[in-house]
Each structure stands twice: as C-alpha cells, then as structure tokens.
C-alpha cells in the first residue's frame, strides 16, 4: 500500500495588492495557482522525486505534504489519514511524528543560538519524550562524532550542517522524509557524501523519501519514480530509466536536452525557446504550448489530462496520440 497518497492537490495564493491600493487603483484581486490538480502516490520505502524549474511548485507541494501549508483543494493522506481534515488529536500526533523535512539551506535551517544536541533532540523533547544520548548516537550515525553535540552550528561546514539536519530528521523515527533540494547548496563532492548518507539511511531505517530537486542527474540517481512539474502541474511521471531513455513530454525532452553534460565537449545545441510564463496568467490549453516545438492547434485550445502511456503518465496531446 502507498504510504502517501496525493489527490488533486491544488494551492492558490492570493497575490493581490493591499486592499487600499486595490480600491484606489481599481485593480481586481489576483490569484496565483502555484500547484494545480496534482495526484500521485508514494509507495512505502521508495523515493519519489519531483523535478521542475524555479517556480514550478515543488516546494509548495512539499510544504503541503508535511502540513506546513493547507491545500486549497484536494488532499494528502499519509497512512490513510488526512492531516487537513482529521480531528482526532492522537491520530494527528501519530502522523506528525511520522513526517520530517530536510531543507535546502543548511545555514538557515539550524537555529544558530542552539547547541547541536538541543537541535537534534527537539523533535523528541517537544513531544515530552526522553532523549538522553540520542543526539550522540544520531551524530555518529550520520558520520559526525558524539563530541560535536556540544558545538554550535557555525562551527560546521555546509555539508556537515546538512548531516546535522539529517540527524535531526531521524530523531523522531519518521517513516517519511520530505527533502527540499537537500544538496542544491553543496559542492558536488560534498553532495556525493550527503546523497550516499541518505541512501544508506533509507535502507537501514526503511525510510520513504519525497525528494525535491531541480538537478536531473541527482534525481536520476536517487529516485524510484520521478514526477516532472511545469507551472504547478504534473506533466510527466515515469521511472528514471523510462524518463531518461525515452522522455515522452516535450518539456521533459527540452529539460534533458538543455542540461549541460559532462561528456558534452563542445556540444552545440539549439537552446530552448522562451522562458517560463507568468504563473498568475498562464497560457491557455497546455501551458507549455508557446515554447513547444511539437505543438498542434489543439494544444492551445484544450488542456491535456495526465494519462497513462505505456509505463508512464503524460499530459501531452501529441504523446497521447490524440491530435
């Protein structure tokens, strides 16, 4: 059974100007749909990766999954419980302690005034649990030393801080960890260390990851299943092999083509056209059609739904063979 099930998840932000400005300048209210009708499942003990460019809604989905943001529509069920509508406090508590999150910026995600021990143990202590020796044990588990527990975050490098974040995330023995670009701020050699650590811990503790990244090579290495987001919508979902060997959606193809290659010496590619459109006023039909090299008339008129094509799910008229 799936540990996480996401159904028609949608999040709309009100980005209107302040009330007074609207009245004076006669502006209407403005809404930004950051995530729109996203559905996917994450089976237990697997890694589901979300990729997409800046502003595609990756972090917003991550925050809704862990319960930091309420969805506008749709919902997230974890172990069959939907945090947004559940009323039983015990059940909420049990789901809460099953979820943890690792953030992108290792400098902002640790409270600079707290000792490492207190940071790591907080998830347990906050629930009134006993945490003697916990921090020391976890620090060794993530490749630091027990004596680091007495230090402050500023005494560590970026990679070491991210290890501390991992240790903290493990403290409450969660089942699901949402990782929002956990290695984007790190150098490749440090990234390798952190990614290896995360894979090891996954096997050891039977963790499930929702892994958010914009780096395709990292995603290919880590994921069991990959969802590609464009302007808040899932445009393709596939296994890494299928996605990288035979991408179906023109946007995925464009991303793969544009990503610089380590073996692409002197590669001359025609760079992709255009930029991501304004999310407040997205294009009609398939949101990708103004940049799409394969677009047909139907693309600007009707929005393609996410449909199963072979092993993958794709939202593209051409890929679905329905033009």
């Amino acid at each position: 059974m799936s540990l996480v099930s996401i159904q028609n998840l949608t999040r709309v932000f009100d980005v209107s100007k302040p009330w007074l400005n609207r009245v004076i300048e006669r502006l209407p209210k403005r809404y930004l749909t950051a995530v729109s009708d996203v559905s996917f499942d994450i089976p237990a003990k697997t890694t589901y990766a979300l990729v997409g460019e800046s502003g595609s809604g990756k972090s917003t989905i991550g925050k809704m999954v862990v319960g930091l943001l309420p969805p506008s529509e749709g919902g997230v069920t974890i172990n069959g419980i939907d945090l947004a509508i559940e009323t039983d406090d015990d059940k909420i508590e049990s789901v809460r302690s099953d979820i943890q999150m690792i953030f992108q910026d290792p400098y902002a995600s640790l409270n600079p005034r707290w000792r490492v021990r207190d940071i790591i143990q907080e998830p347990v202590v906050a629930r009134g649990g006993k945490a003697t020796g916990l921090a020391e044990r976890l620090l060794e588990q993530v490749g630091l030393t027990a004596s680091d527990a007495d230090k402050f975050p500023h005494e560590f490098s970026g990679g070491q801080r991210q290890r501390i974040c991992v240790a903290r995330a493990l403290a409450s023995e969660p089942k699901l960890i949402v990782c929002d670009e956990p290695t984007s701020a790190l150098d490749v050699s440090v990234q390798a260390q952190v990614l290896n650590l995360m894979s090891d811990l996954k096997d050891e503790f039977g963790l499930t990851y929702l892994f958010i990244s914009h780096d395709l090579t990292v995603v290919q290495h880590m994921a069991d299943r990959i969802g590609v987001l464009y302007l808040g919508r899932l445009v393709e979902e596939a296994s890494p092999d299928a996605l990288f060997d035979a991408p179906q959606h023109p946007y995925t193809q464009m991303l793969l083509e544009a990503a610089p290659r380590m073996d692409g010496f002197g590669r001359e590619v025609e760079p992709p056209k255009g930029e991501i459109p304004d999310p407040i006023d997205p294009p009609s039909g398939c949101a990708f059609h103004p940049r799409c090299p394969m677009a047909v008339a139907k693309c600007s008129a009707e929005r393609p739904a996410l449909k199963t094509v072979g092993e993958s799910r794709v939202a593209c008229w051409v890929a679905q063979g329905d033009t």
Partner: peptide, 23 residues
C-alpha cells in the same frame, strides 16, 4: 579525478556515489 567521480552521472547504475572523504 575524485571530483569527476563524485558527480551522479559518473556513478551511473551504481547504488552509491564515489566520494572523496573529508572536506
């Protein structure tokens, strides 16, 4: 050599990435 090896692409197909110890 270590830097090149630690990129995910270089370790394609392997469960763990090659890593340079330390920092």
């Amino acid at each position: 050599s270590g830097l090149m090896g630690s990129t995910p692409l270089a370790s394609k197909g392997q469960p763990r990435l090659h890593q340079i110890p330390g920092s």
